[in-house]
Nucleic acid binder design. Structure first.
Lengths: 94, 94
DNA sequence: GTAAAATAGTTTATAATATAAACAAATTTA
DNA sequence: TAAATTTGTTTATATTATAAACTATTTTAC
């Protein structure tokens, strides 16, 4: 039977964010914005949601005098991502 | 760069429908309803959308005296599904 | 035979979501 | 010093998924 797909991850932008965070130690807001080709507003909202779910950490600091937002995937986020991928495989074969 | 995910397929229920239709010649409404664990209303709406997009055909007839809705994936739907899966692989590895 | 429940859906209303537009606050450039 | 750029956040809107309500027929139970 087809499993539930975690709705927090089953969203193009949030999945993109998580996918990118899987492959790096940490990523800056601007990096994620470029790679996902999203608007800043949308990215900001989705980072908040992932952060509130405990899937990522979002740290705000400064690079010189400009704000700097740094994101990292959490253990819980990694687990959720893997579970999501496994559930998805039930849908797409592979 | 991460590719766009066809929004018509990037939906749990519609993806489930398409996934099931990939593996059979044709499927009845009730079969899809059971396998996807969806409500009839939701299923009806999503079948319409897939049908309008040309991803599936929906044929209405009668089994004895009860209505019978039979669904099949189209060539275009198959292509869209494959494209979607390939795009998705950019997100989930594999 | 007829009232109640089941089957097989559709249509409509609602709640959730994604997304963009508008805004803010500082910094850099011309 | 005015205009543009950077780095975001907040708010509004449009889309979407979903369920609730409804329809029409058929089967079952009394």
């Amino acid at each position: 039977m087809l499993k539930e797909l975690d709705p927090l991850l089953h969203s193009q932008l949030r999945l993109g964010i998580m996918s990118l965070l899987m492959s790096v130690d940490s990523a800056e807001f601007t990096f994620l914005k470029e790679k996902t080709n999203s608007t800043a507003g949308n990215l900001s909202v989705q980072l908040d949601k992932l952060s509130e779910a405990g899937y990522i950490t979002v740290e705000k600091s400064f690079k010189g005098k400009k704000p700097l937002t740094t994101c990292m995937i959490t253990k819980q986020g990694l687990k959720a991502f893997e579970d999501y991928v496994n559930a998805l495989k039930g849908y797409i074969g592979t």
